[in-house]
Amino acid sequence: MSGLLRTISTRTSLALRGPMITQRASVFTRPAKDPLGPAETIIGLGLFALAILGPSGWILANIEDYKKKD
C-alpha cells in the first residue's frame, strides 16, 4: 500500500510543480519576403471557405438520403 501511495504522491508532485523547461515559441516579426498578390489571396480564401462550407453543404444537399431508414 505504501508503494502505491508513494507512486501517486510523486506523480502528483511533478504535476503540481509545473514544467522544468521553459518553452519558447518561434515567432518571426519581420514582414514577408514576397508579399501575397490579390490572386493568391482570393485562391487561399476560396479554398479555406470550401474546406469549411463544403461538407455542410454536401450534407444539406443530401439531407433526404440521410433521413431514410433502410
Score class of each variant (00 low, 15 high):
1 M>G: 08
2 S>Q: 12
3 G>A: 09
5 L>Q: 09
5 L>M: 13
5 L>K: 10
6 R>T: 06
7 T>N: 14
7 T>C: 05
7 T>V: 14
8 I>G: 00
8 I>S: 01
8 I>T: 00
8 I>C: 00
10 T>G: 01
10 T>D: 06
11 R>Q: 05
11 R>P: 02
11 R>K: 14
12 T>M: 10
12 T>S: 09
12 T>F: 09
12 T>W: 05
13 S>D: 05
13 S>N: 10
13 S>V: 02
14 L>N: 12
14 L>T: 07
15 A>P: 00
15 A>Y: 00
15 A>K: 08
15 A>V: 06
16 L>R: 08
16 L>S: 04
18 G>K: 00
18 G>C: 03
18 G>T: 01
19 P>L: 06
19 P>A: 11
19 P>H: 04
20 M>H: 03
20 M>L: 06
20 M>E: 06
20 M>D: 08
21 I>K: 15
21 I>N: 04
21 I>S: 11
22 T>E: 08
24 R>V: 15
24 R>S: 15
25 A>S: 15
25 A>F: 14
25 A>P: 01
26 S>I: 13
27 V>E: 03
27 V>W: 03
27 V>A: 08
28 F>M: 07
28 F>W: 07
28 F>R: 09
29 T>L: 07
30 R>N: 11
31 P>W: 03
32 A>Q: 12
33 K>E: 08
35 P>K: 12
35 P>M: 07
35 P>H: 04
36 L>N: 01
38 P>E: 14
39 A>I: 05
39 A>R: 07
39 A>S: 04
40 E>H: 12
41 T>G: 05
42 I>E: 13
42 I>T: 05
43 I>T: 10
44 G>N: 09
44 G>S: 13
44 G>Y: 03
44 G>E: 02
45 L>Y: 14
45 L>K: 01
46 G>S: 12
47 L>W: 05
47 L>R: 09
47 L>D: 00
48 F>C: 05
49 A>G: 07
50 L>M: 05
50 L>R: 04
52 I>Q: 04
53 L>C: 14
53 L>Q: 11
53 L>I: 15
54 G>W: 01
54 G>R: 02
55 P>V: 00
55 P>G: 03
55 P>L: 00
55 P>W: 05
57 G>N: 10
57 G>S: 14
57 G>V: 11
59 I>P: 02
59 I>M: 13
59 I>N: 07
59 I>Y: 11
60 L>P: 01
60 L>V: 11
61 A>H: 03
61 A>D: 02
61 A>K: 03
63 I>Y: 13
63 I>L: 15
64 E>K: 14
64 E>H: 11
64 E>W: 05
65 D>R: 02
65 D>S: 13
65 D>V: 02
66 Y>F: 15
67 K>R: 10
68 K>P: 00
69 K>M: 04
69 K>H: 06
69 K>C: 00
69 K>V: 08
70 D>G: 14
70 D>E: 15
